[in-house]
Write a protein that binds this DNA or RNA. Structure first.
Length: 139
DNA sequence: TAGGCCATCTGGTCCT
DNA sequence: AGGACCAGATGGCCTA
């Protein structure tokens, strides 16, 4: 994995410390702790990114050749869950036979999905390019 | 070249 | 004390 560490930063984490104000021993301990904390943080973020990748795989990407950003992935997951929830609700309401709703494909219910930004504006137009228009209804 | 997205570092806070 | 989590800062990469 390539490092994207800013060139001004070192892995020592020593730049914000003040070597003069501490004994060399304390400075070394602090440095070691910082390096360990940095490593843990990298690992934690890698875990988070792995989770995002897994989420991207199960979330629909209709006509989206480019990888979804993290924000888009979360928005899509939210909409997807709501759409699936709606399908279940409708199926129950109309007594749809199990076999029938199991056969549903994303293309068939995409029209139910609508994206909203936290500010409440439609999000789909600015970030997604779906072949579907008139997406409506959010659970 | 500006803007979006991202990885990494860092210090603060909370929890065990 | 040390680890987990978080948010801000910073700088690299990529695309329009």
């Amino acid at each position: 994995m390539k490092s994207r560490r800013p060139s001004s930063c070192t892995d020592s984490g020593s730049e914000s410390s003040e070597p003069d104000s501490k004994s060399p021993e304390k400075f070394e301990t602090a440095t070691r702790r910082r390096m360990a904390a940095n490593a843990r943080e990298r690992k934690r973020m890698q875990g988070l990114n792995t989770a995002f990748d897994r989420l991207r795989k199960v979330v629909p990407q209709w006509g989206q050749d480019k990888k979804l950003s993290k924000y888009e992935t979360l928005q899509m997951a939210l909409s997807y869950i709501m759409a699936l929830n709606r399908i279940l609700t409708d199926a129950r309401r109309h007594n749809t036979p199990h076999r029938q709703w199991l056969d549903l494909q994303p293309e068939n219910y995409a029209c139910l999905v609508r994206y909203e930004s936290p500010a409440g504006q439609d999000y789909i137009h600015s970030s997604f390019s779906y072949p579907f228009d008139g997406h409506q209804v959010h659970a």
